[in-house]
Amino acid sequence: MTDEDEPRLADIRETDQVYQPAEDSHLLAKTAAKEVGKDNRVLDVGTGSGYVAQFVQEQSDAAVFGVDLNPLACAEARERGVQALRADLVSSFCRDSFDVITFNPPYLPSAPEGVWDDWMETAVTGGEDGRAVIKDFLDDVGRVLRPDGAIYLLVSTVTGPEAVTEAAESAGFEVTTLAEESHSFEKLLIFQLIPTGE
């Protein structure tokens, strides 16, 4: 048996390498699903296991796509019946493609003492302030969202909701808090972002 025949670490630890549904996923899924109509085209960014995309799809009967950077996540989302593709945020979509976009972003501030340097770290951490990936998302998402569309973004108190609101407003969105849920060390919020058209 050569080295090439040995299963790669990521294959052995597959479920450890894909973010699995947690409180944040449930809150985003149930809040967003209420807002989606069956004729909507929906994108779930950073879809991970595909849980949010699948839930919204089943509740609304809408066409839901899931995008993730992690190939293991794409495969898992596909297993759930979600149309999955591997891409960096919304970079590979055309202008005005979606009525609804959901995003449970990597939002934990990076641990200064060290990094795991694996897919799970990519799935949960958002740079020093936890907002790096959210900012990259906000920079480009207005392009692919229809002018009458809406974004449902999960934000934690750990990530600084005021700073996220400011960033969203300067990216051209009106921000409303649709849901809140308290957990041990954080409060989870669902923001609805509507393009202001300015």
Binding site: P71, A75, R78, L85, R86, A87, S91
Partner: peptide, 9 residues
């Protein structure tokens, strides 16, 4: 591949 497009640069 395996039904999944890889749209990464």
């Amino acid at each position: 591949e395996d039904g999944i497009p890889n749209m990464l640069p």
